[in-house]
Design a protein around this nucleic acid. Sequence first.
DNA 1: AGAACAGTATTGTGGAACAATAAAGGGGGC
DNA 2: GCCCCCTTTATTGTTCCACAATACTGTTCT
Lengths: 205, 205
Amino acid sequence: MVPGQRLIETDLAACFQVGRNAVREAMQKLAARGVVDLSPHRSPAIRRLDPDETFEVLDVASALTGLAARTAAIHFDAQRHDTPLRAAMDMLDEAQRVDEAAMFSQARRRFYRALLTIGGNRELQRIFPAIGMHIIYAQYQTRQLRGIRVADYRAIAEAVVGSNPEGAAEAGHAHVEHVRRVIIEALERSGSMVHPERKAQGEGS
Amino acid sequence: MVPGQRLIETDLAACFQVGRNAVREAMQKLAARGVVDLSPHRSPAIRRLDPDETFEVLDVASALTGLAARTAAIHFDAQRHDTPLRAAMDMLDEAQRVDEAAMFSQARRRFYRALLTIGGNRELQRIFPAIGMHIIYAQYQTRQLRGIRVADYRAIAEAVVGSNPEGAAEAGHAHVEHVRRVIIEALERSGSMVHPERKAQGEGS
DNA sequence: AGAACAGTATTGTGGAACAATAAAGGGGGC
DNA sequence: GCCCCCTTTATTGTTCCACAATACTGTTCT
């Protein structure tokens, strides 16, 4: 599954033993989540982010991650929320220890799900998975990024359990900025950088 | 078209002279934009926001409207962007003058489209229409709200043409807060308010 | 009145057919 | 040899039909 790859619906239908109809609906759901690009009369292609669009995604992610973290910190209730959050963190640690990418992805999803559940904002729960963050995770999957993420997630979690909304929001913004910096460095190394210094356009700290 | 109304796909197919399939795909697109609620084995219902969820939508809207305004202010170029933005503002004025709801909706959409175009953030262009703001506009359509909106939009536009990112973001946040206040008052009048004081959970000023 | 039950309405899904469009390949003209 | 146009092919867009699975409704029995 490489970015830009085209998915022919007849093939998928045959492959999964389902009707073309189901394939089309699945594609629409994936398009809504930003996984595939859908243009009329063309096969759906799994989404590819050029450097510019990558940073655009990060700007949106910064805004909504900050909101998610802040909202979770406001609504955190140790009684109900401590266990699931701690479970997510433990799984992140475990995934990093055994160094398995698939398990790490699962743990990351669990962490964000916990964050969104704690916050309780249904609209955010609906919108958040539509951000192209998944694509970034998949496209720039490095061990370095995983380490940074675990540390950042811990900072967010601590601010949340400490019921510190502004700290949580800031930790969320900081996390996205860390990801941005790592990607900038990776792009500079590979020389595919068009705008050498691309600054964040979200709330400065 | 009243909130909660159920849409039977057979009826719609017959009504619009299209196949059930097309209706289903259209429903999925509407669900992605947050217009209808879609639960398995049940007819799609046009989305209804209870007071709580209304405020949750506003929290998300505040974050993304702020980002949209800030990004537009950063990328504003008088040469290319002055004309479309001014056209949108003129249409808003005209719509308010003749006091037509349909025209006002169209003008509002145009304003946001201009904002998103100026900013140039493709991910934001993709995500923004998915916010349930439409539903709020439809559900709380009052003359008072229209007036507030025109004033707020003007403030945003001025900050944008002045290339003042922080001012634009603040104007965006302020706009959403104004809408929030009007809705709180409306709910208090109608007595359907559960949590009497529901504070914004986005960035304070 | 309340609960189990049958019948109906509606969605979920597969399959076939055809039109419409886009991509690819081939044949002429320069 | 290279480019343009045309034909051919592959793929999507859409409709129709059929049937299974599920939710809704109304009725009957206790």
